[in-house]
């Protein structure tokens, strides 16, 4: 299996470069675009492994919605051209620790699952209906747990964004 391995290394190198540039670039919009490249690389690896549905869902959700929301937020608040100031803060150590821990956890899981084998195992690709049935039978509890987390964060966001003081309500009075 030479082809998939070559493709994997190309994708991985592009992703690593984009990942580094993502945190080193001084331009917020460029950072969002580098993030888009990293996420596209993840989707490409899913496709490489035959997970068609997962790969395109990744494109749809992360590239199509989340990075667009980032860009929207950036443009609404600080759409500077060229370099922006104040992008650094003093939490580098904490961030590096978290990154290393996440890396170790993932690397450990991968090592446990595949060992030293570098062969990419291409299984028969899973159809959407199989995926759906699995999600609704074997994995229904984690599925529900995730949706609860999403619901909680949604409610949290509304609580944070909403201000019920009378002055604020009067400002929005244009709407009928």
């Amino acid at each position: 299996m030479v082809g998939p391995n070559i493709a994997f290394w190309i994708i991985a190198l592009v992703m690593a470069y984009a990942g580094v540039r993502l945190v080193t670039t001084r331009n917020v919009v460029h950072a969002a675009l580098y993030l888009m490249i990293v996420l596209a690389g993840t989707a490409a690896i899913f496709l490489l492994l035959g997970a068609e549905f997962l790969g395109w869902t990744q494109v749809l959700v992360y590239i199509g919605a989340i990075v667009v929301l980032f860009l929207f937020g950036v443009m609404l608040t600080r759409a500077t051209y060229g370099e922006s100031k104040g992008l650094d803060n003093d939490q580098r150590v904490l961030a590096a620790t978290v990154a290393v821990i996440v890396f170790l956890v993932f690397a450990g899981a991968m090592w446990k699952a595949f060992g030293a084998s570098t062969e990419i195992v291409l299984e028969k690709s899973t159809t959407v209906s199989e995926l759906g049935r699995d999600l609704m039978t074997n994995w229904v509890l984690p599925f529900e747990a995730v949706s609860l987390v999403l619901l909680a964060s949604l409610i949290g966001a509304i609580t944070l964004a909403r201000r019920d003081d009378p002055e604020h309500v009067r400002d929005r009075g244009v709407e009928r």
Partner: peptide, 21 residues
């Protein structure tokens, strides 16, 4: 494609970038 409709949604969501950028 097996996932034809998903492809359509993906493409329309990527097309947004053209205008935003």
């Amino acid at each position: 494609l097996n996932i034809g409709i998903l492809w359509l949604l993906c493409m329309s969501s990527i097309a947004v970038y053209g205008y935003i950028l």
